[in-house]
Design a protein around this nucleic acid. Structure first.
Lengths: 142, 142
DNA sequence: GCAATATAATTAGTTTGACTAACTAAATAA
DNA sequence: TTATTTAGTTAGTCAAACTAATTATATTGC
């Protein structure tokens, strides 16, 4: 049957992922902070303090780009920088309490939107989606 | 059980969608055409010819932004514009054979990547993912 | 031990894609 | 037929990406 053909499934999954994120993105706009900055902030929040170069690598941008993003985030009081004690060329970037609060708030809004929509589904459908999410993580890693 | 709690499912789904698209994005870079242009081209390819304003709306950008994107795509020979016969203010934008070929090639690359990865899954897992994709579309619409 | 090289971050300058505002041309309404 | 609305373009601005060059510190080789 066509439903289990890899190419069909791949296409459907790809479309679905695009739609899902597009639907959810509106919630981010309300935080008043741009997507790239929000993303960097997220990495720092959940991955802990980081050097500039490591953060740039994690976000797949150049160090120059990240330098500007971090400097903006710093101006807004969302992250703090300080010289690395062991390597004085390096900086240690970490989220401030304010940054952490903003992240949490944004995440809540985003999830609330999905949450609200998922409420209309049956328990079984939600279970299926949960299983699928786990599989999708495996797809992305392999 | 926690697995069917909407908030948990929402979080898992969100993460999974982000990862999936990130993993696939690398295939697009190889086409040598930017994401916004590729996306517009995709709409024209699968949705057929369109006016500028309709295309702008579909891509959720202003007419001014789309005007520039289309003019770039035209320079590259990927789309063709001509005055609408019935409304001479309007333009009819359509994909050229070259544009169609590029789209198809890009799409193949992207899906090949997912396809290759999905091959490692069982038939049952792929069926589950196919069902989940359908549900995700519903989540995004509702 | 010091000159050469490498690395971390920043700064300067460019490009792309987004926006708004202002404009031209064509269609529709009063 | 004059006024208004609509379709698209152009000009100017901004954010975020890039590369290249610069500064400061670390590391290596002689």
């Amino acid at each position: 049957m066509a439903r289990t053909d890899s190419l069909e499934v791949a296409a459907a999954l790809h479309r679905a992922a695009i739609r899902l994120l597009r639907a959810v993105r509106v919630a981010d706009d309300e935080t008043g902070i741009s997507a790239p900055k929000l993303s960097a902030l997220s990495v720092l929040t959940f991955g802990g303090p980081s050097s500039l170069s490591a953060l740039a690598k994690a976000e797949q941008v150049t160090a120059a780009t990240m330098s500007k993003l971090v400097s903006d985030l710093e101006s807004e009081g969302l992250v703090a920088k300080r010289v690395d004690r062991e390597d004085k060329r390096g900086v240690r970037i970490e989220v401030t309490a304010k940054g952490r609060a903003l992240m949490e708030e944004g995440r809540k809004r985003r999830l609330a939107l999905l949450h609200k929509r998922l409420g209309k589904f049956t328990r079984e459908e939600r279970a299926l989606l949960a299983d699928a999410a786990a599989l999708m993580m495996r797809v992305s890693e392999g």
